[in-house]
Amino acid sequence: MVNNLHLYREALILTLSLGCWGILFSFIIGLICSLISYYQIRGLKRIVSIYIELSRNTPLLIQLFFLYFGLPQLGIMINSYTCAIIGLTFLGGGYMAEAIRGGLDSVSRTQVEAGLSVGLTQSQVTRYVIFPQAMAIALPSIGANVIFLLKETSVVSAVALADLMFVAKGLIGMYYKTNESLFMLVMAYLIILLPISLLFTFLERRLRYAGFGR
């Protein structure tokens, strides 16, 4: 079993790297979408709502299958790694957008007015008053989304990526060492997810000291 540890390690690294890219890009997409929503930018507002509904009401697995098996038919060939990242970004962007939007909405109108009354321009108000508070309020949701996306990476074996599920399934099939394989599998996910969960709890507490959040 110890011989197979390196397989788990490589799969862990793959899962983490997919997760990191997915989280990063979905945060960026989510940020852009939530700002468009918050400032009600005409034209784009509609597209953003449709996107959010699509990404939140369909499973990642389907999105991956469509991207990986369907798009080549239109002449677009994507390798599985990129495909997984695109899928995670598509899915995660919708969730991140909702989380950030929730934060933006929570900053009361009177805060904005207080900022304007001191002579700040609208963009300065956004930068110095709204944004810090919004991010702090949205942090728990963002944390939940981060953990959610990391767990969602477990489906990427469906598009031929050698992730943790793939390794576990293979080892069970080949060596019948079911219990050990499953145990390693759970351990691997705990190694990734528990520290992150603790990190976010810590961050939430720090921000609450500095006056953010409720």
Binding site: E53, L54, R56, N57, T58, P59, I62, Q63, F65, F66, F69, G70, L71, P72, Q73, L74
Partner: peptide, 18 residues
């Protein structure tokens, strides 16, 4: 086929969940 079948299943999930 993959495009249409998976596209269809995609919309099925959407039509149920939305």
């Amino acid at each position: 086929a993959p495009l249409w079948i998976y596209g269809f299943i995609f919309s099925l999930y959407f039509m149920i969940c939305y």
